[in-house]
Design a binder for these strands. Structure first.
Lengths: 211, 211
DNA sequence: AGTCAACTACACTGCACGGTGTAGTTTATG
DNA sequence: CATAAACTACACCGTGCAGTGTAGTTGACT
């Protein structure tokens, strides 16, 4: 009955947060292969040894970092969803608000898109990233639930809410991500708003209830 | 008036093709940083020295490889466009044929998506990749021209053909690329067809002429 | 004061890889 | 056949980096 030995120290949450924060920043900027653990340690204000005692190796640090980040982003998205599509009167205004908030979140931090970029880049090298997480699924599901609700209210006509949710996400973020190479190149707020609104327009033309 | 000295040899087209072919294969599988020039040389059946005499360094080889590949893909796309949307009677059948051929091309070789994946991954490290090439632009334009033609025939209602072309591309490929992580994970032909047809359906709901 | 865990600083190993230099072999060409 | 260019094989250098080992410092708890 021996434990599998990795955690020689149990570590403090504050240090873990510092390490993961620095790791995310460097991984997003440099990609996995180009990132050195020394750079992360320096950026986190922590010795390299501590990182290895905490996480074992670079790969585990990478996976832990992405997992934490994904959790945070999922939670943020759920809040955004509740805020913008919680109670809807004007369907167009509501969806535009949703798209706009979503887009500014992308534009401000560029973190969400950058995480996508990193995952796309590294997916084939880390099979763990490929497995659909329950969190990822719950995001799609939450959005679909909202759309189903709007369908029931007679504001939308979405016979397959899961599919509609997929298209809404695609239409809102697709062109922005495409143009910016998933956050690699900046884009003006006005341009982002234009692209988002265009996407919403198409979504509504396809899914608005026939009055 | 001295030349900038790189090409110590002028090289044969056949060897260039072998090198670029091997390079593409390895770069797509491993990504830039993980790829060693030795691996490319071995895979191409060529000495490492020859590669350096041809291309100077790894970065140039990488950029040349992507440029060649992009040219080939652009040409293939133009042919596909002519083949499927050259003369259209039934708009739905034509667009579905377009989407289906496009999708099988993606599914068969997985090359197109993988190139996208590689470019997304490396865009921020190679500014040269960010500059929109005339070729890239011409693809969007060719598709937009076809759509404008269909608009003129009264089959579609696309007031802004460039935007419509963007959405068509997004709707046809977006969900496939998203699910497969740009080709990192395989997807059955039937599933691909389903996703493509769904995209076409949305496009038509948004852009079909009101009869 | 004493103890123990967390932590840092730092030296060190091993390895993979980009890039070069060169001697010798093949191949094309006149 | 002779000459030159193309090409290979191979040794080699420098470097950056993952990961380890360890001695010494800090700080909390008793």
């Amino acid at each position: 009955m021996m434990d599998s030995s990795p955690p020689l120290r149990q570590g403090s949450p504050a240090k873990r947060a510092a390490i993961v924060g620095a790791a995310l920043q460097v991984f997003l900027r440099e990609g996995y292969a180009r990132t050195s653990v020394d750079a992360i340690a320096a950026s986190a204000g922590v010795s390299k040894r501590t990182i290895y005692d905490y996480y074992g190796d670079k790969e585990q640090l990478f996976l832990s970092t992405l997992k934490d980040t994904q959790s945070a982003q999922t939670a943020a998205f759920q809040r955004l969803l509740e805020r913008t599509l919680g109670h809807v009167d004007d369907i167009e205004a509501a969806l535009t608000a949703f798209g706009r908030e979503f887009a500014t979140e992308i534009a401000r931090s560029a973190e969400r898109a950058a995480v996508m970029r990193l995952m796309i880049a590294e997916a084939s090298h880390f099979p763990a990233l490929l497995e659909p997480t329950p969190e990822n699924h719950s995001v799609q599901h939450a959005l679909a639930d909202r759309l189903a609700e709007l369908d029931k209210q007679g504001l939308l006509d979405t016979p397959d809410p899961m599919e509609a949710a997929e298209f809404l996400g695609l239409l809102v973020t697709g062109r922005v991500n495409h143009r910016t190479w998933y956050g690699a190149v900046p884009l003006g707020d006005a341009e982002i708003a234009r692209l988002v609104e265009g996407g919403i327009r198409i979504f509504l033309r396809a899914y608005r209830a026939d009055a």
